[in-house]
Amino acid sequence: MIEYKDMGIPKVLNKKNRVLLRELTKTDFKLRYQGSVLGYLWALLRPLMMFAILYIVFAKLLRLGNDIPHYPVYLLTGTVLWSFFTECTSQGIQAMLARGDLIRKISFPKYIVVVSTTFTALINLAINLGVVVIFALINGVQPSLSWLMVPVFIFELYALSLGIAFLLGAINVKYRDVMSIWDVCIQALFYAVPIIYPVTMVANSSMLAAKIILLNPIAQAIQDVRYSLITTEATTTWNFFNNPIVMAIPIVIVVIILIVGSIYFRRKSKFFAEEI
């Protein structure tokens, strides 16, 4: 029996690739907190500390979000999801360079390297969401069926992060400037996404700005998680536009970025071993 296989088409997650993916994810997770006294606790402490800073500055000093119920948990949810997005993309973009030794020495589907780092970010997110839920319950948020929608929006955010990591990661192999550019983009995006401020505040001064903000898939996903998890007072793309066609825009953006990213990555990955 003759079996032809084109090496350009990796058998997506066959058994061998699954084992590799799991081992690389485990290694990644272990290494990230290696040598620190508090170890894995940092996965929890980082977003909590960021939350504490934002809470003191924006909720207490600047008095933002007074009209949103459960504002502290609302803020925490936003920061946790934002950390996930930045971790996923930054680590994903650098993954190829970080694992250059493997890419130069063995033949395996390169996307495993990127996916394993994003899995590490997913594990961190799961831990952090546990904290969010505990905080929410303490804060008096009533558990409801809408909580079941949360994984859907997280999946959307993950798909977006993965698409960005594939696209920019592939370019970053050759042009290392990409990482620096992305760092600046992240800074800018942080303010373009309603994490610390309520969308209604923007809408009061400029309706157009609020609309643009809510078409960003990151903002849409975060607001939807807040809506389903914390409070129906959260402004979502859906209840702001109330138009199914407009609602589709952020989702289309995610799908396009993921498809373009994957195709570009697959095409470029053939030469990673030579270029790294």
Partner: peptide, 19 residues
């Protein structure tokens, strides 16, 4: 390939085996 100095021998054996 993939040996990592920060991991134990045991962990490295499993990682290298997966590779």
């Amino acid at each position: 390939v993939g040996f990592n100095p920060e991991l134990t021998g045991r962990e490295n054996v499993y990682l290298n085996g997966a590779l």
